[in-house]
Structures are given as C-alpha cells and as structure tokens.
Design a protein around this nucleic acid. Sequence first.
DNA 1: ATATTTGAGGAATTTTATTCTGATTTAAAA
DNA 2: TTTTAAATCAGAATAAAATTCCTCAAATAT
Lengths: 150, 150
Amino acid sequence: MEQIDDIDLKLLNILHDNSKYTVKELAKMVNLSASPVFERIKRLENNGYIKKYIALLDAEKLNRGFIVFCNIKLKQHDRNIGNQFVSDIMKIEEIVECYNISGDYDFLMKVSAKDMKHYQDFVFNKLGSVESIGSTQSTFVMSEIKNLYG
Amino acid sequence: MEQIDDIDLKLLNILHDNSKYTVKELAKMVNLSASPVFERIKRLENNGYIKKYIALLDAEKLNRGFIVFCNIKLKQHDRNIGNQFVSDIMKIEEIVECYNISGDYDFLMKVSAKDMKHYQDFVFNKLGSVESIGSTQSTFVMSEIKNLYG
DNA sequence: ATATTTGAGGAATTTTATTCTGATTTAAAA
DNA sequence: TTTTAAATCAGAATAAAATTCCTCAAATAT
C-alpha cells in the first residue's frame, strides 16, 4: 500500500469539503503547479483514497427534511432473518443509512421523510411489511448541529 | 419558489450518486442536448437544490473506520450550557455529525475514530474536557449495511 | 561519484464547460 | 381558434479546463 504525504492529505481535506475547485486553484493552495496536483489526485482516486464524487442536495427542498433515527430489533438472530432484513431495507428509499450495532438493538437506521405524517406512513406501511423486524424505537431529530457531509 | 420537473429530479438523483458525469453524458441520459442540461444544473445550483459537490473518502484508509454513535446528556438545560456544548463539539474533529434529539438523551453524535483505543482516548480527553456534558452512552457500529452517502 | 528513480514545471493537446443564436414549443391572452 | 409572449431546445462557436507529454532537477540507491 502506497503512502500519502502531507500534500495529499491537504488535497483530500479540500476535496472532501468542495470538489469543484479546478486543478489550477488546488495547485495554488498547495504551492505546486497543475500537473503534479493532477497526478496526485488521479493517484488518490486509483488507490481508493477518493471513493467517488457526489452532489449534496437540499433535503428540505426535496421534501426530505424530517430526520429520524430508528432502532430495530430482529425477531430472531439467525442468518436467514438477518439476510432478509438487509435485503428488504436496501429497497426502502426513506432509509438513507443503516448500521449493525452493539447494545440493546440490532440495527440503527437514519430515516429521511417529508414530515411526521410521511414518517408514520413509512413505519406502518414500509417497516410494517418487513417480516424480520421484531420491534422499533424512534428518536426524532429536532435540529442538526453538525454534519461534515452536509 | 421555482418548480422542478421530472428531468430536474432525474439529474439530481444522478448527480447525488456521481457528480463526475460530463454534461454531454447527462444529456444523453435524459434525452436532451448539452445546453439545456447545463442550464438546468446551473439553475438547480442557484436555487439551492444542489448545495455543494464533495469527494467521498475511504474512512478505513484514512484511519477513521471505527464508527461509534455517542448519546449525550447535558448537565443542565439552559441556553448557556447548550451554546457552550455546541461550540465545543464543533472543534472536535472526530465528531462528524451531531443532532439535537428527542428522548432520554439530548444529543446524538456520530464519531469516527481509528480504533477502540483512539475512541477511548477521544472519550477521556476530548469529551472529558467538555464541561457541559453530564453523561454519555456509546453504541458501537459493527458493520455498515447501507449508506446513500458512502 | 555516478546511475536511477521520482516528482516537478511548462508547453501542447484534447476534452469539457460555457455562451450565443435561431428555431420550436408551450402557455396565455385575445 | 388565433395570436403573442415566454420558455426551452438544438447546434455551432468560444473559452476554459483537464490531460498528456517532454524535459529537468532533486533525491536515493549503487
């Protein structure tokens, strides 16, 4: 595995916050010319340090500003139930993140809905039809304080 | 507030997953020529539907693959304590997300560390010096199942 | 001390973004 | 239904950026 230096790290941090800088602009920020910066970025992409480039959208404008963290317990803890659960939640668009966790619950999901009404509908109709789920517990987000990806 | 149509929505969904497509490629995907697609994207940016463009990095490679959800209770619930807490957590790099939530705890934070040792150091030395915190409860991520941003 | 490798700078080239023009469609008004 | 105005489109032209290529200097190994 190749090593990265301080300049690579600086480029990664800049691009993580804003990937629209031109190579020329980045070059100025790290005190190099365009071509080495271009090559460094390509190397970071090819070596997997940069996974992808995405656009961040305004959840509120797209009617997805109501955020809920939903804890899940499975009915049983065998492999089939677990695989079925994973397969089911992958298809549900309101679930934007899902983690297998330690503690009282098995999974923690971040759910993105338009409002409480939409969330209620999501719990009844979408989660309600996932057979593997034993119980759920919802924690509502009142405000977002910090988000390095938002 | 301007309305967006199905083509705008399709562009947003594509760019949310991969912002590196060229305008020409996007044009082919939505059956338009380059110029209207270019104009649509500029309009979506200017109207705030697209907030920013970022690079997603590999947490594991950057020694940040150990994820913990950390629940926080404040000592007291007055405005000064709350503001102090927000101001403090903003400066701590391991905290990548933080939400004010309903329920037993006041805040839910997503923490990104190298490993358990690093997390322990984070809890003792960084959270430990945040005066406003009353108690914490850690939930460890064993595996990431789904992440539309990752 | 010399050869080899690595990484830099700058020019040249290719590709892409961006602008502009005119045609067509759509929506509203008469 | 016809007319008018406003959007929206396609395609060409231009500007800017990405990408490649070559040469050179510095660091490292022989």
